[in-house]
Design a protein around this nucleic acid. Structure first.
Ligand SMILES: NC(=O)c1ccc[n+]([C@@H]2O[C@H](COP(=O)([O-])OP(=O)(O)OC[C@H]3O[C@@H](n4cnc5c(N)ncnc54)[C@H](O)[C@@H]3O)[C@@H](O)[C@H]2O)c1
Ligand SMILES: NC(=O)c1ccc[n+]([C@@H]2O[C@H](COP(=O)([O-])OP(=O)(O)OC[C@H]3O[C@@H](n4cnc5c(N)ncnc54)[C@H](O)[C@@H]3O)[C@@H](O)[C@H]2O)c1
Lengths: 212, 212
DNA sequence: TAGTCTCTGTGAAACGAATCACAGCGTGAA
DNA sequence: TTCACGCTGTGATTCGTTTCACAGAGACTA
């Protein structure tokens, strides 16, 4: 019923609105929000409609109220605890970022199969051996998993997370991962994204670079 | 003319085909490639059509030949050199990953405004003070940029990169960045992706978790 | 108080991408 | 030599999303 892309944009609007709030701005028009979010005014209005909020034709949207409405819409349920699997280069970067993250989506546990990386706390997040994955995910009630293990281990990691009760996955491994139909999975394939950029860059400047 | 999404999928097919080649597989049917890439057989056939390759109704596609055709299609131009701006947690993870990356898209320079992080070589990539950005990008003929700086610095970084001749950008900062119309930009907003996963996870398991 | 302005909310239209469906074909079996 | 099969390539169709376009409404002006 509610589209994937609308949710993505609402998340962007929310961040922009919080910035506006910090800057003391009280009202915002759809075209303004659109410009700061990289989409069109009509799209903003459609998306806002989905949250049930209604603005005023004169003042536009009330920044605080719209931010609140989007918050209620996006984070309607209780906080969604997150587990990270794979404390490698990427995993550690994600952990370093977590303090700045949304408190409604706390990173509560990390797992690795390398004994040297576990049984400690990084940025407030406890690191466990991967053998304890099921136990910790179930006892903590974790519902979201981040896969940051090598491709070869991705499918098995996904399977274990889903069995343990996870219903949302963020997969960084450049591999297609099968999950049960009730599980939502989002793939963030960085290499693919870079190849895409390189492809279009190649199209846009097919001639040799003219130096300075 | 050629769609964004088709390019993305071709990049995935390419990787799958290379795996198949390593495994000694010589032929592949569209439905098989589809299953391993997470899409449908019809989609595979349409996308393959775009590369100009034609398979045989009996054997399907020749793995090596199709991989070659996709390669030619995606990397038709000379190698696209890449610059990374922001040698922070994420930037370092990307650098660590670069040896495993496509040699047609080499990471040749990295920049940071923190003097402690520059004037050295990390994983074969030279790190420069950000003041030298224009100079290095122009002299090396770099056409692709990766933005891994804090949001506040993203727009200015993009502007500098574009001025210096970059025509493709991969942006990790959770901010909308304006670029000239001839520049292709791809945003990888990890926080947004996680919020999306958390949202759908919340929808799929709205009831309280039943422990063990 | 009437008029004008600009914005929202939203039905309708346009667009683009995914899917369907089938003709065409080479192969292997009988 | 003929038939049946299963796959590719692709026109036609369906589906979801974006964009258009305008009615409706509050505020400000004169
Ligand atoms: N680093 C990047 O910039 C980058 C870019 C694109 C894609 N990726 C992908 O992200 C994933 C992680 O990348 P990385 O750079 O962090 O790799 P990495 O090798 O640094 O880290 C992988 C971690 O996973 C752990 N691990 C391996 N098998 C495991 C298992 N079965 N269970 C639990 N833990 C296990 C390893 O001990 C290691 O700590 C890979 O799939 C990689 O392809 C990374
Ligand atoms: N680390 C993550 O997992 C993660 C997740 C989501 C988003 N991001 C985004 O990616 C970006 C980088 O994240 P990070 O974790 O690596 O941050 P970080 O703070 O670790 O690194 C940022 C780096 O950029 C450098 N820098 C700052 N201003 C600069 C400028 N004007 N020019 C050149 N260099 C400059 C800093 O010196 C630092 O080395 C941020 O925008 C962040 O929001 C990161």
């Amino acid at each position: 019923m509610i589209s994937d892309k609308t949710v993505a944009r609402l998340s962007v609007y929310r961040r922009v609105l919080l910035d506006m709030q910090d800057a003391g701005q009280e009202h915002v028009f759809s075209h303004e929000l659109a410009a700061r979010s990289g989409c069109t005014a009509a799209q903003v209005r459609r998306d806002v409609m989905a949250t049930g909020y209604t603005g005023s034709p004169v003042r536009g949207y009330d920044v605080a109220a719209l931010a609140g409405s989007i918050n209620d819409f996006l984070f309607h349920s209780e906080a969604q605890k997150v587990a990270l699997v794979g404390i490698g280069n990427l995993g550690r970067a994600l952990m370093a970022f977590s303090p700045r993250r949304n408190p409604r989506i706390p990173l509560v546990a990390a797992f690795d199969n390398d004994a040297a990386k576990v049984n400690r706390v990084i940025h407030g997040c406890r690191c466990y051996p991967v053998q304890q994955l099921e136990e910790v995910v179930e006892s903590e009630g974790i519902r979201v998993g981040i896969i940051a293990v090598p491709s070869a281990a991705a499918q098995d990691t996904a399977r274990r997370l889903c069995r343990a009760g996870v219903v949302g996955l963020l997969n960084f491994a450049p591999t297609h991962v099968w999950v049960p139909p009730h599980v939502y999975i989002e793939n963030l394939d960085l290499s693919m994204a870079l190849e895409k950029v390189a492809f279009f860059a190649g199209l846009r400047a097919p001639q040799k670079e003219i130096s300075s």
